[in-house]
């Protein structure tokens, strides 16, 4: 079994699992078979079955995880290409993003607190609508459990992508651009790819929701939770 524990093997297994999971989704076309979720599940199963500890895995895992932070910086490029759209409708975008961001943090924190969740769980939930790399950074900075945040973020994205449009029509949100920005704000990348199915302009608009909500949540999550007496 020892050869399985080497850096190279574990990285290879991570890549291959993801490749397989992505193929599975392409073949089935099911949103629920999200490659990230499937890969995480398969890898956990693999580690449990082989008895390899998470600590061993994480030494190789760090080499992959390392690229998350440069990837956040790289989001500066789509943000730049969207600047014109942002300026054209600065107020609708900023006001709705601000409202959505605050509503998201306050609601998840208040409900979790009322139902008796512990402090670290509440902190881990706070950035749940933000894209995973940003959410992980926020969670670890505020004292949450980054990996719990990562898992919840994926589940939030899937739920949003599957049920989001139904919820929006219940809420009488009919404008396609309003729908797009909501889906990006609530369900980050996975919600965005759902909107992109309707046309590139909707995907691009949803991307704005991801980025701006990411920035706002990074700025507001700490102060909001302080006000609510969490941290």
């Amino acid at each position: 079994m020892e050869f399985l524990e080497s850096d190279v093997s574990l990285i290879a297994i991570t890549f291959l699992t993801f490749l397989g999971a992505r193929k599975l989704q392409t073949l089935t076309g099911l949103v629920i078979l999200n490659p990230v979720l499937i890969t995480i599940a398969v890898l956990i199963l693999f580690l449990k079955l082989t008895g390899i500890s998470y600590e061993t895995y994480s030494q190789s895992g760090h080499m992959v995880e390392f690229w998350l932070r440069p990837a956040i910086v790289a989001l500066g490029v789509p943000l730049y290409t969207q600047l014109r759209t942002i300026r054209q409708q600065l107020m609708p975008i900023l006001i709705s993003e601000f409202a959505g961001c605050v509503a998201g943090i306050v609601s998840v924190v208040a409900i979790a607190k009322a139902l008796g969740a512990s402090k670290e769980i509440i902190i881990s939930l706070a950035p749940k609508s933000v894209t995973a790399p940003i959410a992980i950074d926020i969670s670890s900075q505020l004292g949450g459990i980054p990996s719990l945040t990562a898992a919840i973020v994926v589940c939030v994205g899937l739920t949003g992508a599957i049920l989001g449009l139904k919820v929006l029509s219940y809420g009488h949100v009919v404008n396609p651009f309003a729908k797009s920005i909501s889906m990006g704000t609530a369900a980050h990348v996975i919600g965005t790819s759902r909107m992109a199915e309707f046309g590139e302009q909707y995907g691009a608009f949803a991307t704005l929701g991801i980025i701006i909500n990411g920035i706002l949540t990074a700025i507001l999550a700490g102060p909001i939770m302080q006000m609510m007496g969490i941290c």
């Binding site: 990230v36 890898l43 956990i44 580690l47 690229w67 992980i136 719990l148 990562a150």
Partner: peptide
């Protein structure tokens, strides 16, 4: 490839 990069922190959920 962002999705791929957050596989390892996701695995930590175990």
């Amino acid at each position: 490839n962002m999705g791929f990069f957050f596989v390892p922190p996701g695995v930590a959920i175990m």
